[in-house]
Design a protein around this nucleic acid. Structure first.
Lengths: 143, 143
DNA sequence: GCAGTCAGACAACGTGGTTGTCTATTACCG
DNA sequence: CGGTAATAGACAACCACGTTGTCTGACTGC
């Protein structure tokens, strides 16, 4: 590890992500939402936050509109969203998150937060804030 | 973000990973190793570190032996490894990293390390060490 | 020496992306 | 007003990277 600290850092970041996400997926399954992935939760979040169509969702997630459409089809299948004709624009299908969708989002967000809180309890809130700050630098600045 | 700090943490971890990896992939391409992904580099690393067969590589990467075999096929295609019959065990195909493979590993590790060093320059080595410690807790302990 | 285990090949499939093409609809501008 | 450009979404083909299942051939241990 001391011989490849950079690569080790990359592995740690990925492992941290998957650990957190796996935990949340398990919790969602336990709470009556099997078959949900982190991708689904993030997409539903983006829709609830304002992405009103497949094209918009794609832009907001940074993927193609076709990929977004597939995610939407899955979410509709799982009854997490409704798709209706947009009265203002006949090209569009307007998206709204269902009650079940909101419930799933709440459980997911709660599980993420609970995990983060437990982690803060182990390493200290200051260390966690520091980590988040470093990651913001890493992801937003030309390092 | 303050409303969903846990989910935000997950996004930061993933974004941090992809930022780092994308940087390294670009550097590898620039240095004469196009078409290489982080998966390839990690697999080659595991092979060089002792994984001597597809089954072993799969175990060491935590994937099925079939998935490992596919990665190996790609790496062989790209001239990063040789596969020869094992004289001791006719079932096995012995794996060795080629010179070009070692060169690619060196460039990749160098790029990872360089990025980490630049990051340390921006946020301080102490913050980086703290981050790595938190991630080790996150990934190795029952939080 | 035979039963069980292990390595690897092959096939079928799933997921989550991609590009490309097509039609219908809307927006813009001369 | 009308024609052209841009946009939304559907559909198809494809790709990367993983999965499970099945099969054969080769070792291992009792």
């Amino acid at each position: 590890m001391d011989t490849h600290p950079g690569a080790k850092l990359a592995r740690l970041l990925l492992a941290g992500f998957t650990t957190l996400v796996d935990e949340v997926v398990v919790e969602l399954e336990r709470e009556g939402h099997p078959g949900v992935t982190a991708t689904h939760a993030f997409a539903l979040d983006a829709i609830d936050a304002g992405a009103q169509s497949a094209s918009e969702l794609g832009r907001s997630l940074g993927v193609s509109k076709q990929a977004a459409a597939k995610t939407i089809a899955t979410l509709e299948e799982l009854s997490y969203l409704d798709r209706r004709a947009d009265p203002q624009d006949a090209r569009r299908k307007h998206l709204t998150v269902t009650d079940r969708g909101h419930e799933m989002m709440a459980i997911g967000a709660g599980a993420f937060d609970a995990y983060r809180t437990r982690l803060a309890g182990q390493v200290g809130i200051l260390a966690l804030h520091s980590l988040e700050k470093v990651l913001r630098v890493l992801t937003t600045q030309r390092v």
